[in-house]
Design a protein around this nucleic acid. Sequence first.
DNA 1: CGGTCTCTGAACGTTCCATTAACACTGACG
DNA 2: CGTCAGTGTTAATGGAACGTTCAGAGACCG
Lengths: 234, 234
Amino acid sequence: MSLSDFSGRTVLVVDDEPMVREVVTTYLTRDGLDVTEASDGASALRAFEESQPDLIVLDVMLPKIDGYSLLSEFRSRSNVPVIMLTARGEETDRVLGLELGADDYLVKPFSPRELAARVRTVLKRSDGAGLHPGFVVEVGDLRIDPGSREVEVGGRAVELTPKEFDLLAFLATHPRQVFARSQLLEQVWDSNTAWQDPSTVTVHIRRLRQKIESNPDNPKVIITVWGVGYRFET
Amino acid sequence: MSLSDFSGRTVLVVDDEPMVREVVTTYLTRDGLDVTEASDGASALRAFEESQPDLIVLDVMLPKIDGYSLLSEFRSRSNVPVIMLTARGEETDRVLGLELGADDYLVKPFSPRELAARVRTVLKRSDGAGLHPGFVVEVGDLRIDPGSREVEVGGRAVELTPKEFDLLAFLATHPRQVFARSQLLEQVWDSNTAWQDPSTVTVHIRRLRQKIESNPDNPKVIITVWGVGYRFET
DNA sequence: CGGTCTCTGAACGTTCCATTAACACTGACG
DNA sequence: CGTCAGTGTTAATGGAACGTTCAGAGACCG
């Protein structure tokens, strides 16, 4: 699968205007995306549960439940990327959106071509991307808050360096999946890390363990998979 | 504490039907909110004084005192956000409510989930909203009065320049959230600040710290998050 | 058992970033 | 016109984080 091939990915489009939904759907489908539509908050939540979308396009102004509430609803359940749509002149509380973990904003009327482009961008980014603010990860006695970039283990705050935080966040959002050191370099470090020394990862894993494992000599959270790499265990 | 964590916040629910109160209380408690109940105007006012709620859910149709009178009672005392409940068919004078300063409306019968969502939204909005004159922010030993644009730290008045005040006010109204320098530029400075030097923020943070931190070399209020930005700590 | 991989602990230079002080620009005001 | 507070920029400094390396110990596997 090439990077620009999004076949099999699903996008949920939430807007109360059928026209908007239709146009958006047309353009996204053309990119090989599956599209699910919803016209209000309730059906959006239902569709979210059912279709497990890889991305959500969300109108801020919706009947009954507004987009921001919906966004935090989504955020309380997943880390899925979200692109918000706002009408011109609408008071776009960008900060609120960013705090809640919106990935991008588009002001209506927007060009569908541009929306499609943003969708592609966000999807690409979301592969390796870290956590959205508002989506607090809690596994075991670990608690990762991307908003404040704080980590607690067993209620006790732990100081992590940026790389350590990013590394942990990545692993925690892909639990039980094994990653080679080179993969982690690719995902957590800047792009083009092919030339880098994979043992860099080893060292960072080590320092991480010393901070978050109750017994670093016998790691329970970040497991070594022999000959392969590491795995985050819940 | 994440943004979607409202623990410690108190909501006052005013309705004469015990059933309604119970259902609402159940849902709000689930969100980590403390809930106080009142069944009529008099007890509502008492509860308001005692529990100092962060938000009020107010039925319009109450025995003895109606909701609108109660709303203006509240308004004369505080800036607390209010969500009004109106029965279907009741002549819902939206305009009247909005003039008196209601933040949102819900028509009975309403879905408790939706009410909970609106409560979250309004609470978040009141977090992020610019400061209303007359509404004083107090966190820790900091006291920020937007009306007079005065700041006190530990009872001692502190002179801040306009930018310093705006910067502090923004951070204080978004506690624990990390903001990049560029984000702060965007929010506190005029729009279209992309070309500006982010180190401008650094300098202002520094000057702020010297004025409000008891020990500027070891800041406790405005925390540096390395490689990311700054965070306001309560 | 022997070979391979990983962990440990430390050290090192490097790079990046926040801090700091100093300076230049601006508009307000007397 | 001169002063001054507020502001933004710049350059120097210091420190935190990073990547790398190494040697010895330990773990795993065939």
